[in-house]
Amino acid sequence: MNNREWDGNQMSVMNDHSGAGEPVMKRLSAIHPIVRFAVVASLPLLMLAGCSDLGVKPWERGTLAKPEMQLVSDPVEAGLDDHIYFSKEASSGGRSFGGGGCGCN
């Protein structure tokens, strides 16, 4: 498989409607990283800012207490996957600490 062609096909799906035809990643890369981070970071925080009225009463929490509704419902699985992706990608952490921990090949 020609990787460059494969990449192009994948990225073209994510083109916006401007007609520029440039992949999203390439266009994002043109923005200063700090500015890009600030913009992306602010969106969910702004969403949460309106959350003061959100929530439930104590007697409405039965569903949320179920094991499958825990944000990390299988920590062993999450830990194994984190280790795999830590070894194979340049990113780590986010959900928890990125840390170090291995001289991974």
């Binding site: 929490r61 944000l71 990125g98």
Partner: peptide
């Protein structure tokens, strides 16, 4: 050797009786 310092700030919010959301910001310095 290397040292790694991680900081994590997070908010977990119950949206309704069936929805929970989390947002984390983390900083890692190696």
């Amino acid at each position: 050797t290397k040292t790694v310092v991680d900081l994590l700030l997070g908010v977990t919010q119950v949206i309704d009786s069936r929805t929970v959301m989390q947002v984390n910001y983390s900083l890692s310095m190696s």
